[in-house]
Nucleic acid binder design. Structure first.
Length: 775
DNA sequence: GATTAGGCTTCG
């Protein structure tokens, strides 16, 4: 039996060849075959399944003889049947002996402060587990000495009485991140609410920042132990007392339930997991958790919002204000202020600050936040709560405005700064995004950010930008420059069709979510359709992968085939057919491959290496294309779709005609031989233009010319999406009065559209592009 | 050992 539950002490019943090993001697590379490790179960996580269906169970063992050492605990991971068997019988406080384990580097050692290795046990590894159950009769003193907490009872927030000490659960409705109080402690004010819909505001103090709840977001779930309840202003109030302890959990429904705490040992039962999941569900529908978070690319002047960012520089400005230089990988769409400080006062990597200069914003923090800001480490990840953006303009140039970032004094509305740990999911996402930012590209994209204000707001580049917006036009005509402007009211009163040159301001545009402007267009039947979702493609691929590739159609005169088996994925096989030229294979970057049975992830990976990919399936006789709901061709990041209505598909054999000639694998050629009418990616937008004499809606129908961004690439490039967002922010800065909007020079044509019985005049923008110094 | 703050945006 790989799992034995023994009612006795560990000294009995162990096979004699086994030797006990101490944590300090556990290290990678040592033979653990005849070793066993013994410890007390101080924490056990719920039994779950891994992605591949394997049962998984995790516990934390504490080495009893060594409990004073810093790392006296170790994670033990159970796989397969052992996970199931152990998960059902193990209890906190049990003594466990683990024999026949594998050692692996613990990925969480930096975060959980446990041993740098973890033990992996499974039947395959030949592991044996001995569990020595807690004696059922324990004395009071024994209970106290165990690292297992007694069963706690939790009071609903509707049942609180003054003068009591209780245990509570709640969803965070409001919080102030810990700040330095006027006394000796850090203070954090937290308002929680539970299913009884009763709120409780708690004032929590502690000299140790870590001892206060690690709340990062509205909606986080907290568990408070031993909190004092008292009455204040005819309301219940929670306040820290002796023995206060807290756990904090991410409030997202379904997210892993990992407690955030500084306490080394804490109780945590399955029942409590349930409580948290229930509170999460309740909060999801009863608490408005959409906090005012924003990326720098989405900032609006005159706004309070929470910013997640990385600190790259800091400097003392004066006694009551302090400068933080931060970035989040995105570009603020407005020119932002640069706070002048002595070079020598600035702490941070000067080279990096210079490299990131177009993405960094300067934040001034005031008064009570200065002390905390001073203590921040450059490089750390921060969330700055209730940051204020303010529009201002230089005294000598009242028409030139820029954005200032302030973290005002006080703690109203949770104003403050919190350092986020590196393992925080938002930080992980941010880091990944920052890694993807190509600095050279982002600098090219931002030629507008030649707005380096050089400390004074009157630099030449800034003026030219301002002029471009105020007098010249943010768009230019690519033809028809000799024509004169026509007023919009004249156009509105004229019969269609006609063409006009106009000068107007962009009042508003649709869609506001720019990625929604990308559509697929068939030039044959003039139909427009939405770009299919990647998930739909994934479903089609999964469906295809259910049928094994037919070996009879493998290898032919014009392609070589290879088949791979998958690991732990049932019968799924991947077949790749490499198209040959002149009976020879080409270099991967010139090669077209046909893939059957691959997942979306695998196909994405292949498309980074091979020039073209055609997803296929096999019939009894041949390979064939998938349904046209899926792309018929993938080239790098571009997915090519065909029109279902206009395509008249030919056999896959037709491709062999292209393979004969030195093939360049042009998508239009591939589509032609396969009988597919290719769909083109287009931007379709509606611009509401106003020139003071009238307002008209003009459609923009653009493949690439207007934005100088190919519509086919924008959905798969965050950089291009940001570029487009930035352009639209210049063409139509949010929250700007009509007078202050920039001018657009456009060429439009009017045309008649029949809508049932009614005839309507529509307008379309063409031969117009965004001015080069805006792009 | 008491105190801190006790939610409800802005001087800069």
């Amino acid at each position: 039996m790989p799992v034995q539950v023994i009612d006795g002490s560990p000294e009995t019943l162990l096979p004699s060849h086994l030797q006990k090993v101490d944590l300090k001697y556990l290290q990678m590379g040592c033979d653990q075959a005849n070793k066993y490790f013994q410890g007390t179960v101080i924490l056990s996580y719920p039994l779950t399944k891994l992605g591949n269906g394997t049962e998984f169970f995790k516990i934390v063992l504490q080495e009893s003889e060594n409990s004073c050492s810093k790392t006296s605990t170790v994670n033990v991971l159970f796989f397969g049947r052992l996970a199931d068997d152990c998960g059902k019988v193990v209890h906190q406080g049990d003594t466990m002996v683990v024999a026949g384990f594998n050692l692996a580097k613990s990925p969480s050692a930096n975060e959980d402060d446990r041993h740098c290795c973890h033990l992996e046990v499974s039947e395959d590894a030949g592991s044996t587990i001995y569990i020595y159950t807690k004696p059922s009769t324990v004395t009071a003193s024994e209970t106290a000495s165990m690292p297992v907490a007694p069963k706690y009872t939790y009071t609903p927030l509707s049942h609180l009485k003054g003068g009591t000490i209780v245990n509570l659960y709640g969803a965070v409705k409001f919080f102030k991140p810990p700040y330095i109080s006027k006394g000796t402690d850090y203070c954090s004010v937290v308002t929680i609410v539970d299913q009884s819909n009763v709120k409780l505001t708690c004032t929590l103090f502690n000299g140790n920042l870590d001892a206060l709840p690690k709340i990062y977001k509205i909606g986080d779930i907290v568990r408070f132990h031993r909190i004092k309840i008292r009455e204040y202003n005819e309301q219940m109030q929670g306040i820290t007392g002796i023995g206060f302890a807290s756990l904090t959990f991410d409030g997202t429904v379904g997210a892993p339930i990992v407690p955030r705490t500084s306490s080394k040992s804490y109780s945590f039962t399955e029942e409590e997991q349930k409580t948290i999941e229930e509170l999460r569900m309740w909060a999801a529908s009863n608490l408005s958790v959409c906090g005012p978070t924003a990326k720098l690319s989405g900032v609006q002047p005159m706004l309070f919002f929470d910013l997640t960012c990385q600190l790259v520089g800091k400097a003392e400005v004066d006694g009551s204000s302090f400068l933080l230089k931060v970035w989040d990988g995105t570009k603020c769409p407005y020119p932002s202020w640069k706070v002048l400080v002595e070079e020598s006062d600035l702490e941070g990597d000067k080279v990096l600050i210079h490299q990131l200069r177009n993405l960094i914003v300067d934040i001034l923090v005031y008064d009570n936040h200065v002390k905390l800001a001073k203590s921040l480490k450059v490089g750390s990840f921060l969330r700055i709560y209730s940051l204020h953006t303010k529009q201002a303009s230089a005294e000598n140039q009242p028409d030139v405005s820029y954005v200032e970032f302030h973290l005002h004094g006080g703690t109203c509305y949770g104003r403050g700064i919190r350092v986020l740990p590196e393992n925080n999911p938002d930080v992980k996402e941010l880091k990944a995004f920052m890694d993807s930012v190509n600095l050279t590209e982002s600098q090219n994209v931002e030629s507008m950010s030649s707005l380096e204000l050089d400390g004074i707001f009157g630099s030449l580049s800034y003026q030219s930008y301002s002029e471009r917006c105020q007098q010249l036009s943010v768009t230019v005509l690519t033809d028809h420059q000799h024509l004169d402007d026509t007023a919009l009211n004249t156009i509105l009163n004229s019969a269609a069709p006609q063409q006009y040159r106009i000068r107007a301001k962009l009042r508003t545009f649709k869609p506001q979510k720019l990625y929604q402007s990308v559509k697929l267009y068939c030039s044959k039947c003039n139909s427009l359709q939405e770009v299919p979702d990647g998930d739909d493609f994934d479903l089609i691929l999964r469906d295809c992968a259910a049928t094994a590739p037919n070996p009879e159609v493998h290898n032919s005169l014009w392609y070589d085939s290879a088949v791979w088996d998958t690991e732990n994925q049932g019968q799924r096989k991947i077949a790749v057919h490499f198209v040959k030229h002149d009976e020879l294979l080409q270099e991967p970057e010139d090669t077209l491959i046909m893939v059957q049975g691959g997942t979306l992830k695998e196909i994405r990976k292949l498309s980074r290496r091979f020039k073209c990919i055609i997803p296929v399936r096999s019939t009894k006789e041949d390979l064939e294309l998938l349904d046209l709901s899926a792309p018929f061709l993938l080239q790098g990041k571009i997915w090519h779709y065909g029109c279902k209505q206009c395509s008249n598909q030919k056999t896959i054999q037709s491709l062999s005609s292209l393979a004969v000639e030195e093939p360049s694998w042009e998508p239009t050629e591939i589509a032609r031989v396969l009988g597919i009418e290719p769909l083109q990616y287009v931007f379709v937008m509606k611009f509401t233009l106003d020139d003071g004499t009238g307002t008209l809606d003009a459609y923009l129908f653009d493949y690439e010319k207007f934005f100088q961004i190919p519509a086919s690439e924008v959905l798969t490039s965050s950089l291009l999406q940001e570029k487009m967002e930035m352009i639209m922010n210049i063409l139509c800065p949010p929250g700007t009065k009509l007078d202050d909007l920039p001018w657009l020079e456009c060429f439009i044509r009017s045309y008649n559209v029949k809508d049932g019985m009614e005839q309507q005049v529509c307008y379309q923008i063409f031969d117009t592009m965004v001015a080069e110094d805006v792009i």
